[in-house]
């Protein structure tokens, strides 16, 4: 049973899972980072308070976050087809993954940026800094370790979601686990894929934690 073909399949599945996770996270950040920034900036008491924009984004983020991933995955199949050309496979899974993760990322970014001391923002304003400078050089720069921790959490969460996409032929380790482990009762393959998924999350978490610690200048060493 553990022939070359199976091993190759699992190695390939690991690669596909990483591909989906990394690309989805990247896209989710491309959407979620600006979204999180806008949430912080337009919030009451923010740099440019705007009740309407804030409320709309706040509600949209909450709605998307509250839709279970599997439902969202199927709900947006037409959209996925429109973007990728098909609704199954690893690349097609990236679309719902990114869309599901973006609001989650936005909330993580929001909470990271809100940790930045208001006094530092005020100091920058007193120096004549514009909002753009404050966003990038104060908010994002000062929150960077917290943002990296958030990024690590996102990677882990998206990795978990990507395994779920296996149900609809999403590809990757989750797909293998369902097809072999669940439908064909091959428990050994199931166990191997689960162990690999756990190992991947562990590794990503470790890298993220180390990176954020290394970049944090508030810790005196």
């Amino acid at each position: 049973m553990w022939d070359n073909q199976t091993i190759m399949m699992i190695v390939e599945g690991t690669g596909v899972t990483l591909y989906m996770t990394l690309v989805s996270t990247l896209i989710a950040y491309a959407l979620g980072l600006p979204l999180g920034i806008v949430l912080v900036v337009t919030a009451p008491g923010g740099l440019m308070p705007n009740k309407i924009i804030f409320k709309i984004l706040d509600v949209v983020v909450n709605i998307v976050r509250s839709i279970p991933f599997l439902i969202l995955l199927m709900l947006i199949i037409p959209f996925t087809r429109f973007i990728v050309g098909k609704s199954y496979g690893a690349t097609a899974t990236i679309v719902p993954l990114a869309i599901a993760a973006a609001p989650f990322v936005a909330r993580l970014v929001e909470s990271s940026l809100l940790e930045v001391d208001h006094g530092v923002i005020e100091a920058a304003q007193s120096m004549g800094a514009g909002n753009w400078t404050i966003i990038w050089k104060v908010l994002v720069a000062e929150a960077r370790t917290s943002l990296i921790v958030g990024g690590t959490i996102s990677l882990g969460t998206i990795l978990g979601y990507s395994a779920m996409a296996g149900v609809v032929g999403g590809g990757g380790l989750g797909d293998i686990a369902i097809r072999y482990g669940y439908y064909r009762y091959q428990a050994d393959i199931m166990i191997v894929t689960v162990v690999l998924l756990v190992a991947l999350v562990q590794i990503l978490q470790m890298i993220g934690t180390r990176l954020s610690r290394k970049l944090d200048r508030r810790i005196t060493r």
Partner: peptide, 22 residues
């Protein structure tokens, strides 16, 4: 106003330095 503020510096009780910068 931002230009004017470069001429009116301010220091604070809690210093308000950027913690991630040297």
């Amino acid at each position: 106003l931002r230009n004017m503020r470069t001429q009116i510096a301010m220091i604070f009780q809690h210093f308000n330095l950027l913690m991630q910068r040297t």
